[in-house]
């Protein structure tokens, strides 16, 4: 991780152009998610079997799906769902990862215990763990969220631990310590500034990954129950209509790609 090319700290002003573009894409999607549910008079599950797979019109701005449900409502709900899940996963896994990472860098015993645990977790592909956990409680978002967080914290842990180890051994931190400052001050003064840029980058990628994982679960039919709108599941359900109603299928595909793309741009460069 390069520490000098700080992408955080100065806020939006210090962002590169592509990061700003990423931010704008995500904000537009967020506005769409809020606006869509607010504007649309239809509910998530309201069907009209006489008006299936309609093209966009003044009644249905984004057309209707295979049940005659409003795509505007469903798309905005689905985007909202992905955003919320991504957000809480990122926050949870970052908190766990950073706490344990700093702790492990400081203490030997914790370090070796965590080392074993992380090695085991790393040897199991994340999606497999998520699949198994999602199978335990189908339809439960709590479990989905726990499963994704459980997989994602490891990356924060590894990065934070590595950087913190360096910082702890730096002369600056050691002199601070000798001057008698507390642990919290040392963390705030020395560790946080060096890990913050990396955490920001990881968080942006993590948001993208959470969204991808959820879409993947929807795609293999695990963990999502009707009538909920989820981008991956919508892709599967609408796929058979690709020649009949390509505009409907394109919507969830475009939304996933835009969200992930936005997060990737926001993350900036990964080195």
């Amino acid at each position: 991780m390069s520490l000098d090319r700080s992408s955080r700290g100065g806020g939006i002003m210090k962002m590169t152009l592509s990061q700003k573009i990423g931010l704008v894409i995500l904000l537009i999607l967020l506005v769409f998610a809020f606006g869509g549910t607010w504007v649309s008079p239809y509910s998530l599950s309201q069907q009209d079997l006489n008006a299936i797979l309609q093209p966009p019109s003044t009644r249905h701005w984004l057309g209707t799906d295979q049940f005659g449900r409003s795509m505007l409502t469903r798309m905005s709900e689905a985007v909202m769902l992905s955003f919320s899940l991504g957000l809480i996963c990122v926050i949870t896994s970052a908190i766990i990862g950073v706490t344990l990472g700093v702790w492990a860098a400081w203490g030997e015993t914790v370090d070796s215990i965590m080392g074993v645990l992380v090695n085991i977790l790393l040897a199991l592909p994340g999606l497999v763990i998520v699949l198994m956990l999602a199978a335990i409680a189908p339809g439960s978002f709590l479990v989905l969220y726990l499963a994704i967080s459980l997989v994602q914290w490891v990356e924060y842990f590894r990065v934070v631990r590595a950087i913190t180890k360096n910082v702890i051994h730096s002369p600056a931190r050691q002199s601070t310590k000798m001057m008698g400052f507390g642990v919290w001050y040392q963390f705030k003064r020395h560790i946080w500034p060096s890990i913050a840029p990396s955490i920001f980058t990881l968080a942006a990628f993590g948001g993208a990954n959470a969204i991808l994982t959820m879409a993947s679960l929807g795609f293999v039919y695990v963990g999502i129950q009707p009538p909920l709108a989820e981008l991956g599941l919508m892709t599967v359900e609408l796929f058979p209509y690709y020649s009949e109603a390509p505009w409907v299928l394109a919507q969830p595909l475009l939304a996933i790609a835009l969200m992930v793309f936005g997060f990737h741009l926001l993350a900036g460069k990964r080195t």
Partner: peptide
């Protein structure tokens, strides 16, 4: 079955 269930869900609503 899933699609028919989804339809019945909406109709009974």
């Amino acid at each position: 079955l899933t699609t028919v269930a989804t339809a019945i869900q909406a109709q009974w609503a």
